[in-house]
Design a protein around this nucleic acid. Sequence first.
DNA 1: TATCTGTGGTTAATCGTTTAGATAAATATA
DNA 2: TATATTTATCTAAACGATTAACCACAGATA
Lengths: 344, 344
Amino acid sequence: MTIKEIARLAGVSTATVSYVINNTKNVLPEKRQRILDVIEQSGYQPNHIAKSLRVKKTYTIGVLAEDIRGFTVPAIINGLTEYAEKEGYYILLNDLRMMENLLNRYDMIGQYKDKVNKAISLLLHRAMVDAIIYIGMSDRDITGIINEINKPLVIAYSTTNDSYARSVTYDNEYISRNVIEHLLEAGHRRIAIITGPLNTSPACMRMRGAEKAFAEAGLELDEALVRHGDWEYNSGYIHAIDLIKARPTAIFAMNDLMAAGAIAAIHHAKLRVPDDISVFGFDNREIASLLQPKLTTVEIDLKGIGSTAAQMALKGIRGESSPECCRVIPSRLILRETVAPINI
Amino acid sequence: MTIKEIARLAGVSTATVSYVINNTKNVLPEKRQRILDVIEQSGYQPNHIAKSLRVKKTYTIGVLAEDIRGFTVPAIINGLTEYAEKEGYYILLNDLRMMENLLNRYDMIGQYKDKVNKAISLLLHRAMVDAIIYIGMSDRDITGIINEINKPLVIAYSTTNDSYARSVTYDNEYISRNVIEHLLEAGHRRIAIITGPLNTSPACMRMRGAEKAFAEAGLELDEALVRHGDWEYNSGYIHAIDLIKARPTAIFAMNDLMAAGAIAAIHHAKLRVPDDISVFGFDNREIASLLQPKLTTVEIDLKGIGSTAAQMALKGIRGESSPECCRVIPSRLILRETVAPINI
DNA sequence: TATCTGTGGTTAATCGTTTAGATAAATATA
DNA sequence: TATATTTATCTAAACGATTAACCACAGATA
């Protein structure tokens, strides 16, 4: 079934059929209906490939994910697909699969660069996507690595200071400030913090947010209550063991895994959560609601990041140049059971 | 840069250029080299869309996932991408996003059916994928729902008894038998089981495996020690509370979430894991290695399922009809800290 | 009446490949 | 030598859409 066949059956030219399919020129109502009827009956579906070839658009967005496993990327893709589908676009997924080996290893940067650029080139020239969305987990500014491309590029989750690429992230600093504010309001003063590695920007920004919250309250962050973890469960456990000696009334662990470790450490020290020590996490991953007690934490709107990224990509494709080159999606606090006011 | 331009620069016809690019006909070595040089210098990349139109193949595999969030689907896609990429195929991802609303709700079956068929039709007729891989989590046999399609279809993870579709799953029954065998070998006799809902096939098959292990050892499964959970943490907790009264020496929970609940229940009863009661989980999700003590569990080779699905899809595309229509990927036991021999 | 304008439709070129069939030259065979 | 075969290459027709350019006709305008 081709457009030619439809035209023959309806007794018109292919051009006319095309015009009614795409609503791109006036056609007499009676004729239009006849054509639509023929299409309906024959179950005709326009050949997308032929159209792509002719109009030089594939209605496809290439998505490059550093690694699809884990909890962040799928949620982003979920939101992304929803928006793209609504607008009639496809998602061509390229999973770079480099969770363990290449990410955050600076001796591997050459290999990383090659892999990314090869993937982009493939997406651009062979698959001919209309735009690319890069979902970055690592702290690298991807734009410094990518060869020039002539299609819209949007970075999701991680951030960039490139002027060409658009990016969409979350409010790292602001929400972290909220966390500390929440603890301060609950009466906590001796607040310990287990950060991520300070050479990663999320850890830095969250730290800055925390500092601001203290400053705004006229207080000062006690350096003796700050430890630098590595995002892993064990580092949360170990640092908490250490911190407990300094008698904090609350611990803000900058992700849920470390928070889980901290809770285990607190229990191990025969103390109770939140009665003796409150714990605030970050990420709201599955484990957060399974811990006993249930973890109070921060939820990043990953789905929102995804749909916004898709939206920005489509704006780029349609040439609606948005003045904003970086959007930040608000996160929210999930208040569960691990934080309690201090003076009860 | 088109093939025409390359032909002009190399002083040959487009046909000849095409022949050297695709290695499809003999070309004099000297001429071939000249053409390759021109291609190299100009950075020419063949237009994939044009090729697809002509040869009626898009080198694209459509992947339909019921919901990409969660832990299973991404791991499968990871393996799938790896294989497909190696063979020069793309992954067009369609996330149906129906975790909460449609899955396993039988009043929603019409809506479910519509959504799946619309997605497949889109993939087939508009995106023109060469094959479809359906990653099913729910227990529904998808083939009963899909309208006839004339391209290879492979079902991954969940299973089918359709003769047209190929499927690739894991060894539910066998590995479950292994779990019980392992517990029996460790001297356990009073083994409690927390199943999933018995109207789901994984729960049934795992149950059958367990029964066989008992039977083979000349023992009988004690019905009083079996409870039917709903895969959620809470049901593990509640059933374990109840089971503990019957004094089992081991509990096999048919997923890690319920196992985690069971462990919490055991601790709550002031008993120790594994000293008083051993616990065996299933899935090896992230939480398994974070629990204290670390959970002994089953790891399904999701990546293997993914790459095998891709392999089968490609076989289908290439017309290499494999006699086997259903492959099962072996799982393995992950022995950690929650299972101990009984008589120490 | 002659010319302009607008409307609905067709013709045919085009997008960038692949490939069947034609052609010409070189080599083998009778 | 004449004919058949093989080999390397080219010509041109697809693939299935879109769309610029053109055309015929009706009604409006000078």
